[in-house]
Design a binder for these strands. Structure first.
Length: 484
RNA sequence: GGGGUUGUAGGGUAGCCUGGUCCAUCCUACAGCGUUCGGGACGCUGUGACCUGAGUUCGAAUCUCAGCAACCCCA
């Protein structure tokens, strides 16, 4: 604390640079403000304002989600308010959420006859409608999603984009199937789509089956996706739940099978929130600011004119380039603001712009532009082949980002054999721990390691090892980490 | 769930311990004008703040209490 104070006072610290990234928490907060992602000065705890620039990132990120879901899901929207009687129907579900629900109890000055819950999630809003919509096997499968805000009265420490009382960007999908097996397949499909989503954000991740005590309230099981943050803690950035027929029973969602029998449906739901953006910014960003993958950058190419000599000439060349790149459907910004080039470079680096073009008299003379990539690579490119060159560089940048993140990710996961080792590994990373699978041993693991169990890694097979608690031989492993 | 720290212009800060020197310091930002422009330009002129409420006091940025908010650590 005192250190950073004296540091910012001392020397010629003319410009606000970000704190070192190994001081993750401080770096993260500064980044959100300086790069104009979100403003957490709104005077209600756990509720933040999206800056237009941050919202533009959100738009691009969520359009990937839409693109991935739209082929076989329908986007829809349900109300924010849920009547108390519907909300209170599913006992397990209530247990999981009732401490976190905001209630609307008055209309104007008069008390409401039926209190209304602000959705903490929308199962209890959607499923009564599913009962009305679903009559026959021909109505199945049904797959819908919505992107909405949800409210949770968090008692833990709130954090911008990570732990909020208003989640502004909750994408929740809900699917209905004829059989349990079909629903199980849908959970796999969901994880596959999310995998592709995170791959496009150049983010590596872990997939695991949550332990029984940490599954979604009312679910048969929960599969989750976690990203390892720069400080080694994990952030849950996606979940897919097999709901079995729990809600179907409660909300009487049945269909008429081909043989005329009335059967309960099987359901799934799966969600992603703005935490995906927290992960995106945190994993790729550096001390100069954001580093954004091409696909989600609000500004993909920034053109900085070097106004020397014939200024009009330089500007007109820049405008031509801007038009040309715009025609190639790139998001281009020509920076004509009254700053010197160096200041503009820093500004656009803070904003995570993947490609910067510098255009000055020297370049024009040679028929080139100077192309600088956000990861530092810099080269002269002939103007006639500019579009192709940019596309090429954008692809390479994507590979660099993914490679870098992958390396970090792999360096932070380690197989361990004992509780001692697990404890030290989870100080700044993820431990892969042998576990017999018993609930008792699981709780003891969490207690003694001082970290949470993420669950069994999916799509991996392990050899036999002794459970770190009871010593029983087992092929089961579990990830353990300190979680956000 | 438990503990701790903090709240002064848009951002970062000095002042608080020891009440009056403060119509509040410095950096940055912002506005206007001019000179500039190949990695954070400079000059001149301006703009802008003591979280809210109550209390103590002749007098509160400073002390006390409460509220709100933010951050950190531990379970």
């Amino acid at each position: 604390m005192t250190d950073s104070k004296t540091k910012s006072n001392a020397k010629d610290s003319k410009q606000a640079k970000l704190p070192a990234k190994n001081n993750f928490s401080e770096w993260y907060h500064e980044l959100l403000i300086t790069a104009e992602i979100i403003d957490n000065r709104y005077p209600v705890k756990g509720m933040c304002v999206w800056f237009p620039f941050g919202f533009a990132i959100r738009k691009n990120v969520y359009s990937i989600i839409r693109e991935l879901l739209d082929p076989d899901h329908q986007e829809t929207q349900f109300p924010l308010l849920i009547p108390e009687n519907e909300f209170m129907k599913e006992a397990q579900h209530i247990k999981g959420f009732e401490d976190e629900v905001y209630w609307v109890t008055r209309g104007g000055t008069a008390p409401l006859e039926v209190n209304l819950a602000l959705r903490p999630t929308s199962e209890t809003a959607i499923y009564p409608m599913f009962k009305l919509w679903i009559r026959s096997h021909a109505d199945l499968p049904l797959r819908i999603y919505q992107i909405v805000n949800t409210f949770r009265y968090e008692t833990k420490h709130t954090r911008p984009l990570i732990r909020l009382r208003e989640i502004t960007s909750f994408k929740e999908a809900h699917t209905v199937h004829a059989t349990w097996e079909e629903a199980a397949e849908q959970v796999e499909v969901a994880i596959k789509r999310y995998s592709e989503f995170y791959h496009r954000l150049a983010l590596p991740f872990l997939v695991s089956r949550r332990p029984s005590w940490d599954k979604f309230p009312g679910a048969d099981y929960t599969t989750a996706i976690d990203v390892i943050m720069p400080d080694g803690r994990t952030l849950q950035v996606g979940t897919a739940h097999h709901l079995g027929s729990t809600f179907a029973k409660t909300y009487e969602i049945t269909y008429e099978a081909e043989n005329g029998e009335q059967k309960l449906v099987s359901q799934t739901c799966y969600g992603i929130s703005e935490r995906c953006i927290a992960a995106l910014l945190s994993v790729h960003g550096d001390e100069k600011g954001l580093v954004l993958p091409w696909e989600v950058a609000p500004v993909q190419v920034a053109i900085v004119p070097i106004l020397l000599g014939d200024k009009e000439k330089v500007l007109s060349v820049c405008r031509e380039l801007q038009e040309k790149l715009g025609a190639a459907r790139m998001r281009v910004k020509l920076d004509t603001s009254d700053e010197r080039p160096g200041a503009k470079f820093y500004k656009w680096e803070m904003k995570g712009v993947p490609i910067r073009l510098e255009v000055g008299p020297r370049d024009i003379e040679k028929g080139v532009v100077t192309l600088a990539r956000r990861d530092g690579a810099k080269k002269a490119v002939p103007m006639v082949a500019l579009v192709e060159a940019i596309n090429q560089e954008a692809q390479e940048l994507q590979l660099v980002l993914y490679g870098r993140a992958k390396k970090f990710n792999e360096g932070r996961v380690k197989e361990v054999g004992s509780i001692e080792e697990a404890r030290s590994q989870t100080e700044a990373g993820v431990a892969l721990v042998p576990w017999c699978g018993e609930v008792d041993c699981g709780h003891q693991l969490e207690d003694q390691v001082g970290a949470n169990m993420l669950g069994e890694p999916q799509y991996q097979i392990f050899s036999e090892a002794a459970c770190a608690v009871c010593g029983k031989k087992s092929t089961v492993r579990t990830y353990m980490a300190r979680q956000y």
